[in-house]
């Protein structure tokens, strides 16, 4: 089972690499046909990735969310699936050139960083993580991060289109950029839902922390950074504030928020050596 999961993840890795190339090329040569292939490969890779995660979960006996790299891999899958839905609605394929490599890194991280990637049994999970809170807390935070990622993609599309218009360049073909208004609406929706999910994750995290550490909030790096991220998106997601900050400034705020996600998740999760919450 574990071998199967590793093989599937390897296959997904190859698929993501191929999709990344196809999306990149389609942007370069402006070919819808190449983008279509990119999408087809991405759908296939996501399917294989999903089955691979499922196989791993079954082999481990708990959802593949326990370590940072496992979480990252699951996050990659959620991002790709959410992005495919987004692409189907918006008809814009440009972000694929960003999403596919992101998924590639997410899968590669598991295969490279996790010593027991090929044999999950060899890498026993910390006892406190064997809990119902694992899927609730980690699941909601990863889903939230995935939506923030798409919000970030929409914000970047907004900023690129805005720059295009300001420089008075010819309007670009529909499959490369989104209308400003559409990009903004998507950005708002992704951030709003992502923010709700992150709020849930904060609450469940507090309850879990209270259970295992006896206090709902320990001021350690990851939690502090998460609070910063949460407030950044709070500001860009809350309606009255959003009105005043509309457009360009709001989009920059979302970009900052996403940078903060990266620092929180990767910085504190993968690189930090201090702190209780290193996973």
């Amino acid at each position: 089972m574990s071998l199967l999961s590793a093989a599937l993840l390897g296959l997904a890795l190859a698929g993501y690499a191929l999709a990344a190339v196809a999306y990149g090329v389609s942007l370069g040569v402006r070919s819808r046909a190449v983008a279509w292939w990119g999408r087809a490969v991405l759908v296939g890779a996501a399917a294989v990735h999903g089955v691979g995660l499922l196989a791993r979960g079954l082999a481990l006996g708990y959802p593949p969310l326990a370590t940072s790299v496992e979480g990252l891999t699951s996050y990659g899958w959620i991002v790709v699936v959410a992005y495919l839905l987004f692409e189907a609605r918006s008809q814009t394929v440009a972000p694929g050139a960003f999403i596919a490599p992101l998924a590639l890194i997410a899968v590669a991280a598991l295969l490279v960083r996790q010593p027991g990637a090929l044999d999950p049994g060899a890498d026993p999970v910390i006892p406190i993580l064997r809990s119902i809170w694992l899927p609730l807390h980690v699941g909601s935070i990863l889903l939230g991060y995935a939506l923030f990622t798409l919000g970030f993609v929409a914000a970047v599309l907004y900023l690129v289109q805005d720059r295009h218009l300001q420089r008075k360049r010819p309007p670009s073909a529909g499959h490369r950029l989104l209308p400003l208004a559409t990009a903004e609406v998507m950005e708002c929706r992704f951030i709003a839902v992502g923010f709700s999910l992150m709020t849930i994750a904060m609450v469940t995290g507090a309850i879990w922390s209270w259970q295992v550490w006896g206090t709902p909030w320990v001021w350690e790096p990851k939690q502090t950074l998460a609070l910063v991220t949460w407030s950044l998106f709070g500001v860009s997601g809350v309606r009255p504030l959003r009105r005043a900050l509309r457009g360009r400034r709001a989009a920059w705020l979302v970009v900052a928020g996403f940078a903060s996600v990266l620092v929180t998740y990767l910085g504190a999760g993968l690189l930090a050596t201090e702190g209780l919450h290193r996973f």
Partner: peptide, 20 residues
């Protein structure tokens, strides 16, 4: 045939890339 080559259609395309 995709991009506008007259002033009025160029304006329409720009409007579309702002408002959809």
């Amino acid at each position: 045939g995709r991009h506008a080559v007259s002033l009025s259609y160029a304006a329409v395309e720009l409007a579309r890339s702002i408002f959809g």
